[in-house]
Design a protein around this nucleic acid. Structure first.
Lengths: 342, 342
DNA sequence: ATTTGTTCCGAAAACGTTTTCGAAACCACC
DNA sequence: GGTGGTTTCGAAAACGTTTTCGGAACAAAT
């Protein structure tokens, strides 16, 4: 145990703790070779500053908090990857919490992070969250927050997102361009913005191409178990006997659930029904048929979100007024087998 | 800003900070209704203790550090999930770092965590790591460490693992039981223990069943890009023209790479070559043919590792001598399509 | 010899808690 | 009215840093 502290070095070198501290931190008013002696001794005693003391004194922790709905999702893993890389590069540590899509948990975790005095918070809102006072409370304490992926428009802070509406619009337009006409949509639950937006994009694309929107063609996948939701609703869809030649799924996972069911009942993809997903998970390249999808740049989202957050942290520290920005990262259609008829 | 602190509450209620602190922490020597007044006021001013000050004073952070090679892996996501759940339950925060399989990074990150004064560290060693002095340094400071998944036997601390050797032995024995005789092994690089163990299990199973081990049948996948490694080596295997009727892959991902290649060159699985993977990633249920594999309980590993770590943290704090344990979690063969001939 | 300027160092306060220890206040009891 | 016991409170030290401010020592310029 017995961690070495400034006092120990000071005693060993024969100077005051002030001098040691200044030497180690590069203050200019320290003689060259006393500095050298101090540094040498610090290394010899392998000194590590006690961050608790530093943090208490400087009132910053060089730590950010991240709250995500779940870690075991390819998309969030990618985001996390981007977050960790950029945070590391900028010298910040990151504390991860998962809300499991629960509002109460999310709220409690925010409080935990504030207690820990993190310098900023990154959060993708839970599906349940429709009250934002806990976020505003953080903002009011001048702790920067940036929302990503699942955001709330009415919260006044920076955000990094994709344009879900446009991406969905593009995906459906792409299907229409391929000649599909009776296009179903497997949508997510009603609360999260991205679920709403993807639905709206779907609807708009139909209307803009002269196809009347038929509410019977939208299936609700709101059990947060995307794969099973896709599977179950595919069954429902097939049994409804409606004329359908393509489906736009809110997620690759539900798309894969759909594919699994269609494969089982030997409905040919894409000959009888085409399927397009959303997110471009690694998995979509290995199933059969390979899934066409919308690429969602998870790594970039995480990366950019941290970047903005740290910028704002620094601005807040220097009391320069911060201008919130919302970055929209581009998506793209990835065409594979599940939508191209030969 | 202006966080409320003990002083503020003390002033508001008209008592000393000592009293406020004791009231809030449940000390018995505080009058019932002064306590009530203090608590009420604390809530009204929504007081959050400054953890930096608390940590400095109490010399513990209620935070653990986790270092994993990479986050964007289904297995590690699962582990992380288990870690976060159990840590949350026990009231600990977790700081995540990814080593990207780099020894130098791992070493630096350990130092970062020690500087942060985490109460304990959970780590899955990078593939490069073959010197353990950085881990021992932590242990010497009486900070508990538990190794999981990729461990080093010679480090003296608790570990939670699966029995890779036995699992591999079982997988290969299973193949032999199914009548396969010329069984290739796609192995990982030479350093990590689990790579070694799986290889040894493979070899032992052959020998125990009277099949002579042929070094030409083991293919080295050591580029840390499992999928491409599997694909490339499958090509190599096929082009080598050897007589092979099954392959045991060190990872589901390399197995999937193999399957992809075999599918492309229209070698029937499992009729011509059977494939079994390792880990039971979600993905293996959705490819075609569905991949038989060895189930590796990621969630449980993370869960148990945290549990032991926190136990040791508490023991260390109370100066009770800690007995290191190594927990071996059970694995099981999951039979799917890629190994069963009809 | 006095002033002015540089260079180098250290005392001390501060960050916000926790916890020890003593003491005031009150009660009860002979 | 002294003794002993209980309840309730607060002063103060401590945790390990950072940073301000002043001052000592010395050199250079007048």
């Amino acid at each position: 145990m017995n961690d070495t502290k400034l006092t120990d070095i000071a005693a060993a070198v024969g100077v005051s703790v002030t001098t040691v501290s200044k030497a180690l931190k590069g203050y200019p008013d320290i003689n060259k070779d006393t500095r050298a002696r101090i540094i040498e001794m610090a290394e010899k005693m392998n000194y590590l500053p006690n961050e608790n003391a530093v943090n208490l004194r400087t009132n910053q922790t060089k730590t950010i908090g991240v709250i995500i709905p779940t870690t075991v999702h390819h998309f969030f893993s990618s985001v996390l990857n981007g977050i960790l890389d950029e945070a590391e590069k900028r010298g910040y540590l990151v504390i991860i919490l998962q809300s499991n899509e629960k509002y109460e948990l999310e709220k409690k975790q925010i409080s935990l992070l504030m207690q820990k005095r993190v310098d900023g918070i990154l959060i993708s809102l839970s599906n349940e969250t429709d009250d934002f006072s806990h976020i505003n409370a953080v903002l009011n304490k001048e702790t920067p927050v940036v929302l990503f992926d699942k955001i709330a428009k009415m919260v006044h802070c920076s955000k990094v997102v994709i344009d879900d509406r446009k991406a969905a619009y593009d995906a459906v337009s792409y299907l229409i361009g391929k000649g599909y006409k009776r296009i179903a949509h497997f949508r997510g639950s009603l609360v999260p913005q991205n679920s709403i937006d993807r639905f709206l994009g779907y609807k708009k694309a139909l209307e803009d191409h002269g196809i009347i929107f038929d509410p019977n063609l939208v299936f609700m996948c709101d059990h947060n178990t995307d794969f099973e939701d896709g599977y179950a609703n595919a069954k429902k869809m097939v049994e409804s006997q409606q004329e359908i030649d393509a489906v736009f799924a809110i997620t690759d996972l539900v798309a894969i659930g759909i594919i699994k069911y269609l494969n089982e009942v030997e409905i040919k993809i894409p000959e009888q029904i085409a399927v397009i997903g959303f997110s471009n998970w690694f998995m979509s390249t290995v199933i059969s048929p390979k899934l066409s999808t919308v690429n969602q740049p998870g790594y970039d989202i995480g990366f950019k979100a941290v970047s903005i957050l740290i910028d704002e942290i620094i601005q807040a520290k220097n009391h320069v007024p911060i201008k919130h920005q919302t970055i929209t990262l581009p998506t793209e259609i990835i065409e594979r087998e599940s939508t191209v008829r030969i």
